[in-house]
Amino acid sequence: MDTKLEQIVKVLQEKAGATCEEFRDEVHVFIPAGQIVDVLTFLCDEHQFSLLSAMTAVDYLPQDATQPRFHVIYQLTSLVQNLSIQLRVPVRGDQFKVPTATSVFESANWREREISDMFGIEFEGHPDPRRILLPDDWEGHPLRKDYPLGYEEPQFTFNFEEIDVRKPYVKE
């Protein structure tokens, strides 16, 4: 790990109770959900991590109730120091709520809308919580692991007539 990153991670471990993992030269820091806005402000103002490169979420459909279901992932880049750090926020419990990061980075606005559209995670304090990629009257959150893919059976010659009858063609 880079020495500058090591110091930053040490400060985060003391202040925010973070844990850290490394994989293939990347640093993943686990932050509890309540502390994320303070950590982002700290990194953006004091260590010039001025670009929120990516923000996404992963669904770990858990086998037991103690594991968090979602991880919200923030990838920050510092242009002047040429460093990258990845923050992961485990979202626990039944209500999937995380405080919004729009006060720190404006790009989080659309990214959080996309995550709440695809995963159903609520961002408290978001100025514009509407669906962004799917139609407004869509039900469900597609990127969750219990949402079906919507796979339609391909029409080969052996099942051509059966599928042809069921397909909703438009006649005029």
Binding site: S53, A54, V58
Partner: peptide, 20 residues
């Protein structure tokens, strides 16, 4: 069983892939 983030420079900007 781990994740990475890797980015390249596309003609439009930073194209990154988060792969787990």
């Amino acid at each position: 069983k781990n994740s990475i983030y890797s980015a390249v420079e596309s003609p439009r900007g930073e194209l990154g892939v988060y792969l787990e």
